[in-house]
């Protein structure tokens, strides 16, 4: 006898939560630019190319290593959503294949105690550096759209291909929270901490009370920080981990860049064994 939900249900929840973001990514970085005569018809499919090539790479790695296809497809789609539209289209699949392959092999051989997804995401910057380090699409580059705060909240702002919308990331968090196994405490506490400290630090250093709504950072909290394998086990551990990620991101965010979230998640994940040890004391005493 088993509880009605299991691992597959969690993977399904992740995929369902990701779909609105993927669709919005197609619209914002393709169709919307085409309607405004900024792209030709061929280029509106660039986001779709990144989604599809990621799925293909995930399938190849899964078949070679006989690993769970759904897990690898999910990981690849999360990565594809967070990368820049300017990522090199040839280097990306090669790099993704190598990184996903190594990560799967390592997971099989040894227990990895750090957030490998955030590390892969950081390595994927190499594919971006082959072009130019920029998260701007053509419309944002020539700055013809005058976005207000609400537009930015909806997703019309600098960000990964399908991770710029704070609204849709929030929707994803709600969808995921319905699943018992989703570690919502990590995402919620990381987001809240980041939001608060970001306001404080912006005021302290730049004397401005600007609400920072970088969707990619919140995306990393919801989809990557709450990694299904590497994250603390107890509720208190998840809260501490979330707060740590949020705090570190708000510090690193001061230096700019959309990678602050991924770096913070990777660094914080190194402390997971310690967090588990401290927060699981009541279980150890049993």
């Amino acid at each position: 006898m088993h509880y009605k939900k299991e691992m597959n249900s969690l993977l399904n929840s992740y995929l369902i939560a990701l779909i609105p973001l993927l669709i919005f990514g197609l619209y914002k970085n393709g169709l919307y630019l085409y309607i405004n005569d900024l792209l030709n018809l061929k280029n509106i499919f660039i986001p779709l190319y990144f989604y599809l090539i990621s799925i293909i790479v995930a399938l190849i790695v899964s078949i070679i290593l006989k690993e769970n296809k759904k897990v690898n497809i999910l990981i690849s789609l999360i990565l594809a959503s967070s990368i820049s539209l300017n990522t090199n289209m040839l280097i990306y699949p090669i790099l993704l294949f190598v990184l996903l392959f190594i990560s799967n092999v390592l997971n099989k051989k040894i227990n990895i105690y750090f957030n490998s997804l955030s590390l892969i995401r950081l390595f994927l910057i190499l594919a971006l550096l082959f072009n130019s380090y920029s998260y701007l699409n053509i419309g944002e580059k020539i700055n013809i759209f005058n976005y207000n705060l609400l537009d930015k909240f909806i997703g019309f702002q600098i960000g990964g291909i399908a991770s710029s919308s704070v609204l849709l990331v929030l929707l994803a968090l709600i969808i995921l929270s319905f699943n018992k196994f989703y570690k919502k405490n990590i995402a919620i506490f990381a987001s809240l901490t980041y939001f608060i400290f970001n306001l404080i630090f912006n005021y302290m250093f730049f004397k401005s009370l600007v609400w920072d709504i970088k969707g990619t950072i919140y995306f990393s909290f919801v989809f990557i920080a709450s990694d299904i394998y590497v994250s603390p086990t107890s509720n208190m551990g998840m809260i501490i981990y979330g707060v740590l990620i949020g705090f570190l991101t708000s510090i690193l965010g001061l230096f700019g860049g959309l990678e602050a979230g991924f770096i913070s998640i990777f660094l914080s994940s190194l402390l997971i064994p310690l967090i588990n040890k401290v927060t699981n004391r009541k279980y150890l005493k049993s």
Partner: peptide
Amino acid sequence: ERCLNCGACLNICPVNINPL
């Protein structure tokens, strides 16, 4: 499957044992 470290087991345990 591989353990997800979701903590559901230790959170549900009525006597606070950590099955992990």
